[in-house]
Amino acid sequence: MHPTSRSSKWFAALETALPKIVVAPSFMVMVVFIYGFILWTLYLSMTRSSFLPSYDFVGLAQYAKLWRIERWGVAVRNLLIYGGLFIFFCTLFGLLLAIFLDQKIRIEGALRTVYLYPLALSFVVTGTAWKWLLNPGLGIERLVREWGWSTFTFDWLVTSEMSIYCVVIAAVWQSTGFVMAMFLAGLRGIDDAIIKAAQVDGASLPRIYHKIIIPSLRPVFFSTFIILMHIAIKSFDLVVVLTRGGPGYASDLPATFMYSYAFTRGRLALGAASAMMMFFMVMAVIVPYLYSELRRKQHA
């Protein structure tokens, strides 16, 4: 079969353009549905929109208003508390479990399976489970009272100052396994020879971990920190199910604030402004991280 030179030229041109044609739809979708929409939200946040979008430009007035709303202040403060504790406990438990699991444990596979299964669950399921465990009347409180501590109270779920800590408990339960998996992968990547050499020098195991192994996990600490922070800023479902942001709005996070203002209270511009604030928070964390990751790969 001999195609004419003209059609083969056409065919060759198509062949070179094919990769671009294949990714073009995805590229368009990304430009419109990610970057275009971000700009759209940014624009919306600078208008007077309330129930219906309006296109009167008001500059940064909505942001100024946002930061004067007490509920937003509570949401941001909660994010700091929740994010801080969530990252701290996930890292602590995750590292501990990874180190202990790395000691030639006989049933390691089974233990890992148990530690990781919460990750397969939806935050809605996790929230439902913990809502029941933390139920002030019938949950853990009742259990401990029946064990003999008759004055034991554990009613954080319905206490304004404490409800955000319930979110921390459930979120740590869900995400610790992930951190463990990250650290375990890091530990398995460390060269045994270094550890053997230190042991020959007479260093004890805890000392080896403290001085050599944990410091060498720095990159893992770094990525774990970034990912957990990212999870914390985006947290939404867990709060909705567990506390509904309450009592009142005591356990609101920026994501629940945004949903409430944009979708149930019909304050579009304020909702958009809070969404942009979340976007800036995430970018402040992610952009330097991705930049350093990409650079490291180029140099490697």
Binding site: M30, F33, Y35, F37, I38, H230, P254, A275, M278, L290
Partner: peptide
Amino acid sequence: FFAMLLLGCFIPFQVILLPM
């Protein structure tokens, strides 16, 4: 394109909800 896509993995979806 790849770098833009990578960044797109990280955006908090709240920022696209209203336009969507």
